[in-house]
Simulated scan of single mutants.
Amino acid sequence: MWLLPRTHFPSSSSSSSSGSLCRVLAILSFLLFAVALLATPAAASRGDRLPEFKDCVQGCKEGNCLSEKTPLPLHLRLLLWNCPSECDYACQRSVTASRVGSGQSIEQFHGKWPFKRLWGVQEPFSVLFSILNGHVHYAGLKSLKRELPRSYPLYPYYRLFSIFGMFCWLWSTVFHTRDFVFTERMDYFAAGANVLYGLYLAPIRIFRLYRPTYARILRIWGMVCIAAYAVHLFFLLGVRWDYTYNMTANVVVGSITNILWTYWSIRHYTRLKSFWAAWPGLIVMWLIMAMSLELLDFPPVAGALDAHSLWHAATILPGMWWYRYVATLPLPTALSYVLHFALLSILPSPCPGCHVHYVRPC
């Protein structure tokens, strides 16, 4: 293992780091933007076919969107709400309130529950939790750059992990702010890329593929992952947009990653008898339990908090736990302040009493 004082680590220019990060995110966004333009609209939900909903939308459009359009507030127009979409939202809320009042079930519209928006944001809690998840990766990346030496063999892979994480949660935030076909596709593509990168990283760390002797194997493994992602996009855009397939593909890839980290944790905990060696396996268990929220879908509580938003909330602490595992990195930034100290109260430092930086053994 390495026990290095922080002064041994080279510093980097914040401006050049920020510029490099922006370029990476811009390239990823541009590539997925190109394929997302090929997307087609999804099928309607049960709520869309309700006669009262259709009549409401038609009447609203005829009364407000034809000759003299009813003006919308600026904050709604900034988020690309227009008269027809405003009618659609108003009728969703009206029909839902009427059904709840008469003891009927709440139905989905356009594949989503009828949420109460906030300042034009369609799913406020999912947006909030997506921002917090993205912030964990952003703060983690800053800490990695500050704490880890550039000579550390896993540094570039951990850095990419942070970038893919930020990219994923950026598009999750955009999608839950305003649901369009394009933002939905970008959210799905970014999430798939993030999950697949997790699978790419696991064998590199677990089987030490970063070593020069495994250079050829590492290149092959990288090409396999890139090819798998390309085939995934081709199927969704060129063959059939299939929500079930997309979910299954992500679950399968994520499950393989979880199995690898569980194997690593069991092996190293058995050998080292150190609690930190079991952390990846415990993180996996947390995520598996949190994933059950996606399977237990239910109408949003108070029109705002649903299972999907709770799933986003449940992934915040595991992300912080991961960065703490990588190099015992705290995240003392504003948005994660409370969560950070909640985590510290649960997880003792793997190096109690140390006054030097601790990096995990290779």
Score class of each variant (00 low, 15 high):
Ile226Asp: 12
Ala304Asp: 02
Pro84Lys: 06
Ala202Arg: 14
Lys69Ile: 12
Leu305Ser: 04
Ser15Arg: 14
Trp321Glu: 02
Pro149Arg: 06
Leu72Gly: 07
Tyr263Gln: 13
Asp55Ser: 12
Met166Lys: 01
Tyr89Lys: 05
Leu282Phe: 13
Thr7Asn: 08
Ser16Pro: 06
Val284Lys: 03
Ile288Asp: 01
Ala277Pro: 08
Ala202Gly: 10
Thr333Ile: 14
Ile288His: 02
Leu339Trp: 10
Gly254Thr: 08
His268Leu: 10
Ala302Asn: 06
Ala277Glu: 09
Leu78Ala: 07
Trp2Val: 12
Ser98Glu: 14
Ser29His: 13
Gln104Lys: 15
Lys69Thr: 13
Arg46Gly: 01
Ile220Gln: 08
Ser130Asn: 09
Phe235Met: 04
Cys56Gly: 02
Thr333Leu: 09
Tyr157Ser: 08
Gln104Glu: 15
Gly303Trp: 08
Tyr337Ala: 10
His268Cys: 13
Ala327Leu: 11
Trp221Tyr: 14
Cys65Ile: 13
Trp241Ala: 00
Val100Trp: 04
Leu237Gly: 07
Tyr188Met: 11
Leu347Gln: 14
Trp119Cys: 10
Pro318Ser: 12
Tyr323His: 10
Ile256Thr: 05
Trp311Cys: 03
Arg93Lys: 01
Pro156Arg: 02
Pro348Gln: 09
Ala277Ser: 15
Thr248Asn: 04
Thr213Cys: 05
Val359Asp: 07
Thr248Gly: 05
Pro71Tyr: 02
Cys87Met: 06
Arg219Pro: 02
Val231Met: 08
Met247Glu: 05
Ser309Thr: 01
Asn194Val: 09
Arg150Ser: 13
Asn64Phe: 09
Ser17Met: 15
Trp279Gln: 09
Ser265Thr: 07
Trp119Met: 12
Leu296Lys: 13
Tyr138Met: 03
Pro73Phe: 06
Phe341Ile: 07
Arg93Met: 00
Tyr210Phe: 10
Lys273Gly: 04
Cys225Gly: 10
Ser292Thr: 11
Ser15Thr: 15
Tyr245Trp: 08
Ser336Tyr: 03
Leu199Phe: 14
Met320Asp: 07
Ile266Val: 08
Asp242Lys: 02
Tyr243Glu: 08
Arg93Ala: 00
Thr262Trp: 11
Ser98Pro: 07
Arg49Thr: 14
Leu144Asp: 07
Phe298Met: 14
Glu62Ile: 15
Gly140Asp: 00
